Amino acid sequence: MKRIVIDCDPGNGIAGANVDDGLALALALAADSIKLELITIVAGNTPRDTGYRVARQLLQELNKDIPVVKGAAQALIEPAAPWREQLDNNVRKQGLLSLWDNLPPLSALNDHSAPHAAQAIGELVCGHPGEITVVAIGPLTNIAHTIQLYPDFARSVAEIVIMGGVFQLDGYLKDTNFAVDPEAAKIVIESGANITLAPLDVTTQTMLTHQDLDKLQSFANPLTDFIVRTSRPWMDYSIHTRHLAGCWIHDVLCVAKLIDSDIVTSSPYIVDVSTARDCTRASSRRWKEGALRLTVGMPEVIHQPVNVMESVDNQRLLDIIFNALGQYRC
């Protein structure tokens, strides 16, 4: 059984927010081969405190007692306001708020807990070297803070599975997770930890449709009820704005890979994240060691390669989700 931490920015039930974090959490909660020991929250897809309430709402509906710890409310350097304007208000600007009209608001939550995600992650991982996998599916601010606070973290973590980056996908210069905090992404990628990366290039090969949600709905358990209820509006939004058959499920791939590594193909690459203050900012590049032919003027790269996912079997991914969530019992 894999012991994992999920560092995330969930948005299930929040107008205009992606729901893939919630599906990743659901799979981790339902899978027999995974023990979810800690959930930490970072600002990204949603503001930090909103993501915290979403995660607590999910656990409350399941009557689950797993620690949920707040982390960073903003990036290391990148200002938060422009991202919040883009991520929180885009759905209103497009006139699609009504898609979420039938969803009840989040439950009231009176919580004043301290944001100590980095400490919680660092103590768990460094206290159990080689045993804990961190699934990082939001901006990497919390993980960067952990690396800065715990010098042994990179060598103690079993693996960090990251959803982030984009390399050769038409129309995308960067992805949200790296873009919200490129300095944090660079710190983590260059940390020397054992890293597997799921870039947009592979996660946009995934697809979840309303027919798939119908199948999940037929299982009629509290976990699938939450996922179906909160995913329908986002899926309609995705169909309307991205002209897809359903919606991509980026983040869940990072958890599913821990259950069945054969659902993806991958290769080791040197990965670099730009922190320049120009049009390359937050963009990512990858290359094979020794493969670049024109290296004059380039700084020497001393960090080790990371394992980059390249393709996914979407039907096998869906089967993993169906099998786990279908047999879930509180």
Rank of each mutant, 00 (worst) to 15 (best):
I121N: 03
L294C: 13
R48A: 12
A55H: 02
Y237H: 14
V134N: 08
A276T: 13
A256T: 00
N45F: 11
L216T: 09
L62G: 01
T295Y: 00
I187R: 06
I263L: 10
L62V: 07
Q74C: 12
D272F: 10
F226H: 09
I160D: 04
Q205A: 07
L197H: 05
G13M: 07
D251M: 11
D236Q: 13
E190L: 01
G11T: 08
I302F: 10
G71S: 07
D32I: 01
N90M: 03
A276I: 04
L23E: 00
T265K: 09
G51Y: 08
T206K: 01
V69R: 05
F219R: 01
I162K: 03
G13P: 09
I132F: 06
G44E: 04
V306N: 08
M163L: 11
V228W: 03
A28M: 00
L216K: 04
A291Y: 09
A245Q: 15
V202R: 00
V161S: 06
Q168N: 15
H303V: 10
E190Q: 14
L109W: 08
A198F: 13
T46P: 07
V264C: 12
L25D: 02
I227V: 15
L124Q: 05
T204W: 02
Q217M: 08
A324R: 05
T40P: 10
I6C: 03
S274A: 13
N177M: 02
G138P: 09
P182V: 07
P199M: 09
G138A: 15
A72W: 05
G138W: 01
D313P: 00
N307S: 14
T265S: 15
D319C: 06
V54S: 04
P105Q: 03
D236E: 14
Q304P: 13
K35N: 13
K174I: 02
V69K: 01
N177F: 02
Q86V: 09
P151I: 12
R277S: 13
Y328S: 02
L213I: 13
D201P: 03
N194C: 09
T146L: 08
D170C: 06
R56L: 11
P151V: 12
A81W: 07
V301L: 07
V264P: 01
S191L: 09
S274Y: 11
G127L: 08
G71M: 07
P129H: 13
V54N: 02
S107Y: 12
I34A: 04
H210W: 03
V188K: 02
Q168G: 11
I227P: 02
I160G: 04
W100D: 04
N194A: 10
L169P: 01
N18H: 15
A55L: 05
R92G: 09
L173T: 11
L317N: 00
R293G: 12
Y237W: 13
L318R: 10
L36N: 08
L87S: 09
G51L: 11
A26T: 00
I39R: 03
A136F: 01
D170M: 09
N45V: 15
H243C: 05
G122I: 07
A324M: 05
N89T: 14
